[in-house]
Design a binder for these strands. Structure first.
Lengths: 234, 234
DNA sequence: CGTCCATTTGATCAGGGTCAAGACGAGTGG
DNA sequence: CCACTCGTCTTGACCCTGATCAAATGGACG
């Protein structure tokens, strides 16, 4: 295995304020993995042997119910932590992580998490900030599911996708990894049929442009109006 | 104001592993408040001047949408932290907290949170454990809302209420604070009408017993069967 | 060229929201 | 002590959103 260079992680907010020497020490403990599309990085209920940072690619984090239904909890972008069961006081992973494209990740033994947090205060603080942000995101999602119609939820989900993982094209802003109708349904608590119907309707109105495992938002602003919902919109 | 005695907090898990001296130092910085039923302890979007520990009573934490709809995020039990915007890296409260009965709370200036976390590592660790647990609870809730029918969600909510805040009576296990149909609706993302119909139906089957702002679960086990839902239940 | 997967689209229908009244019970003021 | 009022709860009627069932179409890739 080739030596990991500190430039891999130096620019990540997670390691903000750490010296070159500290970064090297952290990297020494890491191993880097290539994960091919569709492979599982860690699995719900499994022993949390490691925690990870995604360097490149995109990861979908899902929870599966006892009945086998899947709910997508979040997508992970390069630079983000994942599988931090230790930071949540758990010994098993609360969800499953699947690479939606070929990925590069760094992995550390789970037991090192508390050492890192103690030795590098900014690392601990940044992790907890991440956890705090995820709590707020998740609470927002609960509010949305409790109060908004499916159409608004799907519109919101699309807007979040393009704002955080969008890529400009000549047609508009596309989600820069393959995403199916089923995937969107699992993010919003609906069915692929409903998502398909919505996207078709929006495409007819010129708001979006679809494709096989592909969505491009043509008119973000009008989609935003839709996402706000009917109250006050006549 | 009378001096606060360390016995008030010594038994709380949050302060586990702290010496008498440390507890005294923490209490010196605290002020205690009595909050009467229905009063607001802190308000969504307001500047997070303080964080709190509930000593006695029950608190409902709600989020209000721009359209004015309310969603109950959680109920706080004695001993729990609340309003810990600082631990989430925020300067404003993400939700509103309302006393559902007369309450006693301790409050500390928000600026002290990071000092506490630094000076008393177990305090910091315990807080983050709380945040982690809430993240998991909230994710569970998302999964439930995405995959379960209203009947199952309401059944689950009731079971959680009595398991965490239940009081045994001769009729069964009652929620030990006043809770209306509307409150239950706001916890589960439905309407008071649907909750009312469900409770009436369950009462006819002998599962629960209702009352004005009061619910008693007579047969937790049968309610649990309902909460599991139809898949596999015939 | 055939197979597999994603997507589309139609038809049906039920869960549960909305609208509308009323009943019930608790607290209040006369 | 009673009448009144307000907030909670119940119940009926209706209907809409979105799930379910079913099938066909269309690309992508081997």
């Amino acid at each position: 295995m080739s030596r990991l260079d500190r430039s891999l992680i130096a620019s990540l907010p997670l390691f903000d304020g750490m010296s070159a020497d500290e970064l090297d020490r952290i990297l020494q403990a890491a191993r880097s993995l290539r994960v091919s599309t569709g492979s599982t990085i860690f699995e719900q209920e499994a022993d949390a042997h490691s925690f990870f940072v995604l360097l490149d690619g995109h990861v979908r984090v899902i929870k599966t119910t006892p009945e086998g239904q899947q709910v997508t909890v979040r997508y992970i972008t390069p630079g983000e932590l994942m599988g931090i069961a230790q930071a949540l006081g758990r010994t098993t992973y609360p969800a499953t992580a699947i690479a939606v494209v070929d990925c590069v990740v760094l992995a550390w033994p789970g037991t090192m998490w508390s050492q890192f947090a103690a030795a590098f205060p900014s690392f601990g603080a940044n992790t907890y900030k991440t956890v705090g942000e995820r709590l707020q995101d998740t609470q927002m999602q609960v509010v949305e599911m409790a109060t908004k119609q499916v159409e608004q939820r799907v519109a919101h989900a699309l807007l979040r996708l393009i704002s955080q993982r969008g890529r400009k094209t000549e047609e508009g802003i596309a989600v820069d990894f393959p995403i199916s109708r089923q995937d969107i349904a699992e993010m919003t608590g609906t069915t692929l049929h409903t998502v398909s119907r919505l996207l078709t309707a929006w495409e007819e109105k010129g708001l979006v442009k679809g494709g096989r495992r592909k969505v491009t938002v043509v008119e973000p602003h009008r989609l935003m109006v839709l996402a706000e919902g009917r109250s006050g919109a006549g």
